[in-house]
């Protein structure tokens, strides 16, 4: 659930940034046509860009989750029997294939 909200946050933030970029370039073009001097950007564009950055950063952090690093937490949810299971010593090439196998 948090992952989906985070992705939506990234999407909305990037769209806000793109929209701000477009409006800033329009604003600069407007100034050029009127032969005005550029002093500073309008406040709404600055706020929109900052909001977009903040939303995208928050969204990027919300798409991932942390894992518990203490080893006790990982071991606690395993059963006692599973500690005697040694997959490295398993062998499948034995008489059982001849005795109980479906083929041959």
């Amino acid at each position: 659930m948090a992952q989906t909200i985070g992705k939506i946050g990234v999407l909305v933030g990037v769209m806000l940034l793109c929209h701000t970029g477009y409006s800033v370039s329009q604003h600069l073009q407007f100034l050029r046509y009127n032969e005005d001097e550029f002093t500073s950007l309008p406040l709404d564009m600055v706020l929109e860009a900052l909001l977009g950055v903040a939303l995208a950063i928050w969204g990027a952090s919300a798409t991932k989750t942390f894992k518990e690093i203490r080893a006790v937490e990982d071991i606690a949810c395993k059963s006692y029997e599973s500690f005697f299971n040694r997959p490295n010593f398993m062998t499948f090439n034995h008489r059982g294939k001849k005795l109980f196998g479906m083929t041959n």
Partner: peptide, 14 residues
Amino acid sequence: CSAVFSGMGAGVLG
């Protein structure tokens, strides 16, 4: 991700 997004923001803000 935040380096990318903040870089975009800084560029847009000029």
